[in-house]
Amino acid sequence: MQTQAVGTLRQLIETASDIVVLTGAGMSTESGIPDFRSDNGAWQDETLAEAMSDTYLHEQPHAFWQKFKQVFLREEFLSARPNPGHLALAALEAMGKRVRVFTQNVDGLHQQAGSSYVVELHGSIRRAVCPMCQQRYGLADMLAEPVPTCHWTNVKGAECGFVLHPDTVLFGQPVRQLSEAVLAAAHCDLFLVLGTSLLVDPVAELPNYALAAGHPVAVVNLEDTYIDGRAAAVVRGKIGEVLPLVVAGEG
């Protein structure tokens, strides 16, 4: 591990009281969740990727849920637990720092780890909503039926019955709370990029708002990113190995 880069990252975190964090797939892969965009990822199957779209959900809701469960509600997701990287971010918050997490992941592991300020830019696999009556449901409800439907009943005892929509952002739908992420990036002491190669817009542009406002950007990622040349610190390594060292004041 690059001792100098880790030391610089530690200093940046120590001196920052308001840290904005952007996390991507690399944060979750360390908990055993597959990266959809990797060479063997789900999105290499074009038919599967097309099925995870807003259009497919509306046109074929029953078939959609079969494929959605195949992609998102399989064992790797359901059994995943926060890794040391997630826990390190929660530890920073427990130390009194303001830590705002904006994640592209849909697994809910940041919240499980104890982070209190988490914005799920791509939604969550752990929630669903009825498109008709807006009744909300949790993961247990989604798993209880092959195709989850709304069981809300009106005063006459009639059941709603509509097929639920998952809370995840599907292809064809906009990223959520992007304006909040932009404002946070422009008003922080440190912008921390964890586990994302910054290849997909508009989220990939967020570090630029921090830099434009004069705030340092630090990157922990196994692969290169376009922002590396302008970052105050770049560490090539696993988040679950790097962050605990930094938070513990080592390295």
Rank of each mutant, 00 (worst) to 15 (best):
L89Y: 08
A49S: 11
E75N: 10
L73D: 06
V193K: 14
V234D: 07
C188K: 07
A210G: 14
Q44S: 14
T3L: 05
V234I: 03
Q70P: 11
E75M: 01
E205I: 02
L206I: 04
D224T: 15
E241F: 06
E93M: 02
L109Y: 03
L245V: 12
V20S: 08
L73R: 14
V220E: 09
M95N: 15
A16P: 14
Q4H: 09
Q134C: 09
V99H: 07
W152Y: 13
V155M: 13
Y117I: 12
L194S: 13
L164P: 13
L139Q: 08
G96L: 02
A113G: 06
A113M: 02
N154V: 08
T8E: 12
L139N: 10
R127W: 02
V235N: 14
A248W: 07
R127L: 02
V71L: 06
R37I: 00
K97M: 01
F162Y: 12
P61D: 02
F191R: 11
D107V: 01
A90D: 05
L87V: 15
F72Y: 08
G7L: 04
S38E: 01
E30G: 14
A90G: 13
P131H: 00
A94T: 14
L48W: 01
H151D: 14
D141P: 12
T55A: 11
S31P: 09
L48H: 10
G251Q: 11
E223M: 03
A140W: 04
S31K: 01
D224W: 04
M132G: 15
S17N: 11
E75G: 09
T55M: 04
A49T: 08
D228V: 05
C133N: 09
F64C: 06
R126F: 03
V234A: 11
D107I: 00
A231Q: 06
A63T: 15
A186S: 13
L222S: 13
T15H: 06
N105I: 01
K238L: 05
Q111T: 12
A94Q: 10
L22T: 14
F102P: 14
V71A: 11
E50Y: 07
R126E: 05
T196H: 06
L178M: 07
R37E: 00
L9Y: 06
A184V: 08
F162S: 15
I33Q: 04
H86G: 08
H151I: 07
L22E: 09
L143G: 15
V169L: 05
E145P: 15
A204I: 03
Q112C: 08
F191W: 04
G123I: 00
G237A: 05
S28H: 03
I33K: 05
L48P: 14
K97G: 09
D18K: 05
F102S: 15
M52F: 02
V71H: 06
A232K: 11
A210N: 08
Y117N: 15
V182P: 13
N221I: 00
P61G: 10
A113T: 09
H110P: 11
A184N: 07
G114I: 00
V147F: 08
S79A: 09
G229E: 04
T225V: 02
H110I: 00
C150T: 13
L92Q: 09
